[in-house]
Write a protein that binds this DNA or RNA. Sequence first.
DNA 1: AAGGCGTGGCC
DNA 2: TGGCCAAGCCT
Length: 374
Amino acid sequence: MARIPDQKITQDLLRDYYEARGRDLPWRENRDPYKVWVSEIMLQQTRVETVIPYFNTWIERFPKLSDLADADEESILHLWQGLGYYSRARNLLKAIQIVDEHMGGSVPRDPMKLRTLPGIGEYTANAIASIAFGEPLAAIDGNLRRVLSRLFDLPDPSSADLKSKATLLLDIERPGDWNQAVMDLGATVCTPRTPDCGECPLENQCQSAKKGTQVQRPISKPKLRTRSVIQTVVIAVNSEGEFLLRKRPTEGLLAGLWEFPGTELTGNNVETSPHEDVAKNLGIDLTGDKTELIPLNSLVDKLSHLTVTYQPLLVIGFDSISHCVTPDRGYCWAGGDAVKNLPLPVGQQKLLKLAREALDAKNIQYRPSVSMSG
DNA sequence: AAGGCGTGGCC
DNA sequence: TGGCCAAGCCT
C-alpha cells in the first residue's frame, strides 16, 4: 500500500539502503573537505565511472589543498584532459588559491561563503557543507530532483517545491549520508529511462510507482538544437618532426587548451582556399616545390551544443616559416613528449592520431630522434 | 534567463 | 546511429 512519503520512514529506509548498498567510492574514504570538493566539481554533469580514475590521479598529484594552490593552469588542464567542461578545472584552481591565500587555507563550512568561490553554486556548496562538515542541507541535483519528482509524483517541481520536499525528508542527523544515499539511488535504481523499482527501498512510498508514471517524472525539457560547423585544419610537421599547435583563447569553448591551427569554413571563404589562408598566416607556403600536402579523412566531433567536422590537411616538407609563428603569439612546435604534455581536447587528439597514422604510412619520422649519422 | 560549456555510454 | 543522458555553473 503506497502512502505519502513520511520523513522518519524514508530516512530509515535510505540509511539502511546506504549502509547495505551504498557504493564504495574513493572520495568516500574520509571526509576531507578538499577531496569532497574536488570530487563534487568533477562529478558535475559527469558519471561516477568516468570520474574515478581522474579523481585518483588528481589526488595522487595534489594530495592536499596547498599542493593544488601551487599548481599552474596548464598542468591542471592536462590532468583534466578528456573530462570535459574545462572551466571547472580553471575555476577550481582559482577557488583553491582564494582559500589558500585569503581564507587561511581551510575550506569554509559556511555554504554562503562556499558559494562565493568560482565554480561553486548552490548544489555544490550544500554538498560540500553537508558531506564534509555535517551541515543540515539538502544538495539538490538531478538525482534528488528525479527522486522527489517521483516520490511525490510531481511532473515539473519548481525550485521551491524541491527545497520544501527535500527539507522535509532530509535526515538532519546525517545529512551527508542522506544526500549521498539519494545520489546512489538516483544513479543506480531510480534512473531516468528504466527505473528498477523492484530494487527501490522507497517503492512503497512512491506516488509515481503507485500510479505507474515513473518514466514521465520529471518531464524533460525540450533539447536545444546543436549547431554544425566545418573547421579547416592545417597540421604542419617541420623537419624536426614536430607539430605546430596553438593555444585557444582563455575564455569560451575549450578555453586554454591547445589545437592545430585552423579556421571555420564560412560562406565567405568557401569559394577560396581556407587551408591556404591558414597556412599563409602561419608563414607556410603550400605551393613550395618540396611541400607535400596530404589531405586526411574528415572527422566529426560531437560536443554538447556543437558538431564540428574537421577537414585536416597534413603539410610536410616546407622549408620556411615566417616570423609570425612564435611562442609569444600562443603557438608552439611540439614533438613526441611535448605533445603529450599539452592539454588537448579529445577532437584534437583524434586529429593527432590521424596525422601520425598518415606519417607512419609514408614512413616519416614524427618524433625528434637521435641522429646516428655523422 | 536561456544558452554556452565536453565527453562517453547507452540503446 | 543519432539522440539522450550524467552529482551544474556562469553570464
